[in-house]
């Protein structure tokens, strides 16, 4: 194979890996938006806490230099539990009191919670970057004509695929998933049908935050430098991915995430790495101009 195709394939693999992580985070945004019509700005900080939970978890459990599948699974579950608890806490303390307030107030609260976690994180964890523990060895599993498939990429792809399938089963195949869909369609009517809307909303935060933790662990593995502000830009781009696919739409979030990851990788590879963040937002503005409801979203007319 020629050099260009080799390079392109490598970018493609990296892009898909990055994109699937974006998709995981985007799912959290889109689920909360679908149910509460709230941009959960604090989601990116939940993701950040997920990375730090893994970092400290590895120390407490003494797993710092014992990479392997069991370490990976243990820390992943630990991070998911921490993040889910944080998500529930945020929902209870900050969002629930504002359930019937104007949406603007909830949005401002979300920004407040996000900033609070960021800057408290800087005080508690320290502002300097920390090195993420090695969870599994990064090794080339297979090599085709010089394009190597690394264990990190396989792990990222495998784990995201697993969680996406699990999520779609949860939403489509279980009772609580049905309740989530019902609350998302119309909260008042769902309550009349005997669904405890508050419980469903809490559950949504649990699921979304746990997915953010998965994303955090995977990102930490691939880019092993974590700091309290790591969530801001990454979360924002994941959110853009959710809007790109159509906010409130689960398959849309996955598609948006993949497009985002691929575009970013290609911009870094072929244009310039300084403009990668600017590029992500340019896509967003273009999308809003031509397809405001996102790629898979349906434009709806508000009824009076």
């Amino acid at each position: 194979m020629s050099e260009e195709i080799l390079e392109f394939t490598q970018h493609l693999i990296n892009g898909i890996a990055l994109g699937s992580i974006y998709a995981l985070i985007a799912l959290g945004y889109t689920m909360v938006y679908g149910i509460l019509q709230l941009i959960n700005f604090a989601h990116s900080e939940v993701y950040m806490i997920g990375a730090f939970a893994t970092y400290y978890g590895a120390r407490w459990f003494g797993l710092l230099d014992r990479p392997g599948i069991s370490t990976f699974v243990l820390l992943l579950v630990f991070a998911m539990i921490c993040c889910a608890a944080l998500g529930v806490l945020i929902e209870r303390l900050a969002y629930r009191p504002l359930r019937n307030a104007p949406r603007l107030n909830a949005l401002i609260t979300a920004i407040g919670v996000s900033l609070f976690l960021q800057y408290t994180g800087q005080i508690v964890f320290g502002a300097d970057p920390k090195v993420f523990p090695t969870l599994i060895e990064d090794a080339a599993l297979a090599s085709f004509h010089g394009v190597s498939i690394r264990s990190f990429d396989v792990a990222i792809f495998g784990v995201t695929l697993f969680f996406m399938i699990a999520l779609s089963y949860l939403i489509q195949g279980t009772k609580i998933g049905k309740a989530m869909r019902a609350v998302s369609a119309n909260r008042t009517v769902a309550s009349l049908m005997g669904i405890d809307a508050n419980r469903v909303i809490t559950f949504t935060f649990v699921v979304g935050s746990a997915l953010a933790a998965v994303g955090a662990v995977l990102v930490g593995m691939k880019y092993p430098k974590i700091d309290p502000l790591m969530g801001t830009l990454f979360g924002l781009k994941a959110f853009v991915a959710a809007v790109l696919g159509g906010i409130g739409n689960l398959p849309g979030a996955v598609v948006g995430g993949l497009i985002m990851g691929l575009c970013e990788e290609m911009v870094v590879g072929y244009i310039s790495s300084t403009y990668r963040d600017a590029f992500a937002f340019s896509i967003l503005i273009l999308i809003l101009f031509f397809r405001p409801a996102g790629l898979l979203g349906k434009a709806t007319q508000e009824k009076v």
Binding site: A94, P97, L98, A101, N105, A106, I108, T109, I111, G112, V113, S114, L115, F116, Y119, T120, I123
Partner: peptide, 12 residues
């Protein structure tokens, strides 16, 4: 930290 707490408390 103070700003963000103020923001949330004011909203609530």
């Amino acid at each position: 930290v103070i700003y963000s707490i103020t923001l949330v408390l004011f909203m609530v």
